[in-house]
Design a protein around this nucleic acid. Structure first.
Length: 268
DNA sequence: TTCCAGTGATCCCTTACCTCA
DNA sequence: GTTGAGGTAAGGGATCACTGG
C-alpha cells in the first residue's frame, strides 16, 4: 500500500488511546444507546475526511478524520441508514460542498493513514468482529466514521478468508500431487511384480511365499514363519484354527493406516 | 404461544477509485 | 502520457437472529 502521493499528515493524527484492551473491557453487544449513537452520518456530497462545516455535524465532527487523505465522496449509501434525522443532517452537512462535488456521482476513495491501518490491524488481531460499542470507540479513536470501521473489518475478514482459501487450495494441490506420485509408484510396483511373476527362473530363486497366520478372534497377522511359530506357541487359538493364506514376500503385517484429511495437514 | 413485520449485523459479490509498473 | 493489473474502500442484495406487537 502506498501513500506516497497522498497528503497524509500523521502528525495531526492523534490516537487517543494506545491500548485496545483499555478501550474495550466489555465485549457485550448490547445497548440501544449504542445503536442510536452509531447511526451513521450521511455521506453524499461530504468529504469524509474533512471536518464538517456545520455545527449540526458535531456528532461526527470529533470523529471525522481531519487528516486522512483524499477528499472522499461516497456516491451511494445504504437506504436503511437514511433516516429523517439523517436527511436533515445531510442537508446541513452538505453545505459548503461545491456544486460540482455535490453533483459528482463518482466516489472518491479514502485511503487510511498508516497509523490508522496499524491500529485497525491490531484490533483485528484481537477480535475480527466488533460490537457496536467497540466500533464506535475505535472509530472515535481513529477519527473515522463507525461505518468506515465496519467496512474496514468487513473487507479485512474477506481478505483473511481469501488468504486462507489460497492456503487451503495450495495444500490440497500438494496433497493431490503426492497422491499422484504415490499412485504412479504403486502402479510401477505392480508392473514389476507382475513381471516377476511371469519370469519362472527368477521366481524359483525367491524364498517361498510367507505363510501368514491370522487369529480369528483378534484378527492379528503374523508375517514371518518364525513369527508364526511364536504366535502359535503364544496363542492357543492360532494352533487350533489358524486362518492361513499365502502372500508374496512384499506383504506387510502392519495394518494400513487410513489417513484422514486432518492427518494430511502440515503441522505448524 | 405462535406468527409476522421491522431492524440490525454480517456475508458475499461487485463496483469504483487509486497507485504503480 | 497511456494503459492494464492489483489493491482496497464502499455499495447493495441476501440471509439470519432478535424483538415487539
Amino acid at each position: 500500500m502506498s501513500s506516497s502521493t497522498h497528503s497524509y499528515s500523521p502528525s495531526t493524527f492523534n490516537p487517543q488511546k494506545p491500548s485496545w484492551n483499555d478501550v474495550f473491557t466489555s465485549s457485550d453487544r448490547d445497548s440501544e444507546t449504542c445503536r442510536i449513537e452509531e447511526r451513521p452520518l450521511i455521506l453524499r456530497g461530504i468529504d469524509v475526511n474533512r471536518l464538517p462545516s456545520g455545527a449540526d455535524c458535531e456528532e461526527e465532527a470529533g470523529v471525522s478524520s481531519p487528516n486522512s487523505t483524499v477528499s472522499s465522496v461516497s456516491g451511494k449509501r445504504s437506504e436503511r441508514e437514511v433516516t429523517g434525522e439523517d436527511l436533515d443532517m445531510e442537508r446541513d452537512c452538505s453545505r459548503g460542498i461545491s456544486d460540482e462535488e455535490d453533483a459528482e456521482t463518482s466516489r472518491k476513495k479514502l485511503r487510511l493513514t498508516k497509523d490508522q491501518s496499524i491500529i485497525l490491524e491490531e484490533s483485528f488481531k484481537e477480535h475480527n468482529t466488533l460490537n457496536p460499542k467497540q466500533k464506535l470507540a475505535l472509530a472515535k479513536q481513529l477519527g473515522l466514521r463507525a461505518r468506515q470501521v465496519e467496512v474496514w473489518f468487513q473487507n479485512r475478514r474477506a481478505r483473511t478468508k481469501l488468504k486462507q482459501t489460497e492456503v487451503d487450495c495450495e495444500f490440497l494441490k500438494r496433497c493431490c500431487e503426492n497422491l499422484t506420485d504415490e499412485n504412479r509408484r504403486l502402479q510401477k510396483e505392480v508392473q514389476e511384480l507382475r513381471a516377476l511373476k511371469l519370469s519362472p527362473q527368477f521366481y524359483m530363486q525367491m524364498t517361498p511365499p510367507t505363510t501368514l497366520t491370522m487369529c480369528p478372534s483378534c484378527e492379528r497377522v503374523a508375517v514371518p514363519s518364525s513369527a508364526v511359530d511364536a504366535a502359535t506357541r503364544r496363542h492357543p487359538m492360532a494352533s487350533n484354527h489358524p486362518r492361513t493364506f499365502s502372500v508374496g514376500p512384499w506383504a506387510t503385517a502392519a495394518p494400513i493406516q487410513h489417513r484422514t484429511f486432518d492427518t494430511l495437514r502440515p503441522r505448524s
